[in-house]
Design a protein around this nucleic acid. Sequence first.
DNA 1: ATAAAACATAGACTTTTGTCATCATTCAAC
DNA 2: GTTGAATGATGACAAAAGTCTATGTTTTAT
Lengths: 189, 189
Amino acid sequence: MIEILRQHIVGRLGNDLDNLDTVLNCFKTVTIDRNQFLVQEGEVCKYVYFIVKGCLQVFVYDDEMNETTRDIVIEGTWCSELISFGSGKPATENIRTVEHSELLAIDRQGFQKMMETVPQFNKVYKQILETSYANSVYRINTFVALSALDRIKWLMEFRPKLMTRVSSKLIASYLGINKDVFSRLKAKL
Amino acid sequence: MIEILRQHIVGRLGNDLDNLDTVLNCFKTVTIDRNQFLVQEGEVCKYVYFIVKGCLQVFVYDDEMNETTRDIVIEGTWCSELISFGSGKPATENIRTVEHSELLAIDRQGFQKMMETVPQFNKVYKQILETSYANSVYRINTFVALSALDRIKWLMEFRPKLMTRVSSKLIASYLGINKDVFSRLKAKL
DNA sequence: ATAAAACATAGACTTTTGTCATCATTCAAC
DNA sequence: GTTGAATGATGACAAAAGTCTATGTTTTAT
């Protein structure tokens, strides 16, 4: 399982990393069922997760307990409530498994150690943060002005796997449209 | 003008900063008319701006040249196309003055120097990035599921000054709703 | 294997949002 | 200050999105 992460890191930072194994030992394996919370609003997010296998939903509740999904994340990527993880303040979002998942988790202490051990890792937090920020900006700029139909077309173009992998309900909450509307419009494509 | 920035910095990083004046000298004063572009999509964003006075619009164009505004920023805050500034890659957003504005601009070189000169400034870029990210996350979570009316109520609660300060057209593009709809709904409140 | 729960689709209907045309008003450039 | 352009409000209508109900299907837990 750690091998997947090794490949991910080597693919990004190159093959000439000293102490990579030391770093990889900072991660602990998490095997977890579907529909389990990894982070809950109001609690501090203690880990950054690397998804080896599975799928996570990052979302908030509105006052009627409807879910709005900010992101759906699958294997091969990082996931965390970064602001909470970095600051130690309570999280403002929830993270839950959508499927049975296999994760690698690193806590703050391990993260620190990682940055001290492998110099190149100094940039990892910054990189994750920058990527997350860029994604958010993109999502705002893309979605705010799009119609429901165009949002669905966007999904099919840029995240086609999600269409078949996760429930319509989840996708609808990600796209910010009603699930019935999603079902109707999808049929017309 | 520099005094405003000095107060902003002292208010955040404390009063015991060595070499603060050296740092402040890295900024250059920019006085600029309304409707002038500071950053254009496709060009590299070379500066981070501190807004001493005035108002900036951060936005993108869709394929019909309609504007979608991601942020409206006023005096006392930082503004830049951070991803481009940090990476040197072309900007994906435009930044334009909404009013005649007075800005303090620092380029990458100055930014580097700033970080070397005043140790605490090492965290400034990270702080700006984290704040920007948090704002984006908040905006996604807040807006995606809100109706046009609720978006207007949100604006009146959290950014009331904008309502009287900038044009309805601009606000509507920020809220992601049609300007006529904005006008109608506003009248009903 | 089975029962219960969750999910997906569809139709009828309501509400919200968008579009367009018009007119009065405000604002900015000269 | 005057004038032309941009802005803002409003009514009539069209289109899009949301709600609710019903029904059949798929999943999940046991």
